[in-house]
């Protein structure tokens, strides 16, 4: 613990952000969100609730989406991090970025980086999600402008550009009325009786 002052010690970390290797020194008590925004200047990742409820700070770490406000910067040592700035490749928007524009999903835009990162993480796991799977996948990203419908449509059509399956989940997966605490998106396998 040498080198401690009132603000604690700095820890050297190496991480890959949007494909770029970065070597920096961070304070232990700074979250990955702080590090991205303040140390790396990547302000696309947004700060809102700081308790892992709103998802505005969602990034992908080693293939999994996380709330970067609940990850310490030092924990990202050695990690591969993708932020909203890394979703477009060589200046070309991803399919979901394009469909977000087309469906009008982005209004004020503040939650959109998080929504997009969650959508990318979802589609990496489930390339052709049903509507309930999209709802579940984006439930950790609050939006106050939209009624979410255009966001959900954007993810569905981004998942399968040019295909007509975008609406299928609506009627297949939402016939029942779930109770508070039900997750209609629970995959069948997990509900299978023993």
């Amino acid at each position: 613990m040498s080198g401690m002052n009132a603000m604690g010690a700095r820890h050297p970390i190496d991480l890959t952000v949007n494909g770029q290797r970065r070597s920096i020194e961070v304070f232990a008590h700074h979250t990955l969100l702080d590090v991205l925004r303040e140390d790396l200047g990547l302000t696309g990742t947004k700060e809102c609730c700081l308790v892992g409820e709103c998802g505005a700070c969602t990034v992908i770490i080693d293939g999994r989406s996380v709330d970067s406000c609940l990850v310490l910067g030092v924990e990202a040592d050695g990690a591969e991090v993708t932020t909203v700035e890394g979703l477009a490749v060589d200046g070309r928007l991803s399919a979901v970025q394009r469909t977000f524009l087309e469906t009008g999903a982005a209004q004020c835009g503040f939650c959109i980086p998080g929504q997009l990162v969650s959508a990318h993480a979802l589609l990496a796991d489930v390339p052709h999600p049903t509507r309930p799977q999209v709802e579940e996948g984006l439930a950790g990203n609050l939006c106050r402008c939209a009624g979410y419908e255009q966001i959900i449509e954007a993810v569905l059509s981004g998942a399968d550009l040019g295909s007509s399956t975008a609406d299928d989940g609506r009627d297949q997966g939402r016939l029942s009325t779930p109770a508070m605490g039900d997750r209609s998106a629970t995959p069948d396998a997990e509900l299978a009786p023993q």
């Binding site: 990742t45 909203v84 087309e102 835009g109």
Partner: peptide, 20 residues
């Protein structure tokens, strides 16, 4: 249904709000 002016910035993280 014109695409949102400022939409590109919003889907790429380049839109700057005061805190940014």
């Amino acid at each position: 249904t014109a695409p949102r002016v400022g939409g590109l910035e919003r889907v790429t993280g380049r839109q700057e709000y005061v805190a940014d």
